[in-house]
Simulated assay, not measured.
Amino acid sequence: MSDMSEAPARDPLTAGRNYRLLADIPLRLSVEVGSTSLKLAELMDLSEGSVVELDRQANELLDILVNGTLVARGEVVTVGGKFGIRVIDVVATEARLSGIERRT
């Protein structure tokens, strides 16, 4: 095969089994509310009750990251008295795979 146009078609049944091979790999899911930059002196001046302004509006969706890569955006919900995230928008596969949305 000289190019991808000659590649064999993927069998959906086999593809599902391949995903199961990866099912037990642990991943780190995190949610980013927002961020800001502070000088060390400003950080040292924080105390109980201090408010730090973030770079995101209160009505904006939160970033959902897996191993530092943005995969979706969502909103906070409560489930049985605990916080949860409702996924509202999933990032395009091409952007995820290319690492464009990677956070540091």
Score class of each variant (00 low, 15 high):
L46Y: 04
G68K: 12
M44F: 04
L43C: 01
L13V: 02
Q57N: 11
V71T: 12
G81D: 07
V51K: 01
R20Y: 03
L38F: 08
V71Y: 06
V91L: 03
E53R: 08
S50M: 09
M4E: 12
T14G: 05
I85N: 10
R73K: 15
P26H: 09
G80D: 07
V77A: 10
T104H: 14
G49R: 02
P12G: 03
V77Q: 11
F83W: 05
K82H: 14
D45M: 10
V51M: 02
L29I: 14
T93L: 10
A72E: 01
E42G: 07
L70I: 04
T104D: 12
T14Y: 03
I88G: 02
D24M: 15
L27P: 00
V76Y: 11
D24E: 14
D3G: 15
V71N: 10
E32G: 12
R20E: 14
A41V: 15
S2R: 14
Q57I: 01
D11Q: 12
E42F: 05
T78R: 09
A15Q: 01
N59L: 10
E94N: 05
V33Q: 11
K82T: 13
S47F: 07
G84S: 04
S2F: 08
P12S: 09
L13E: 03
E6K: 12
G68D: 14
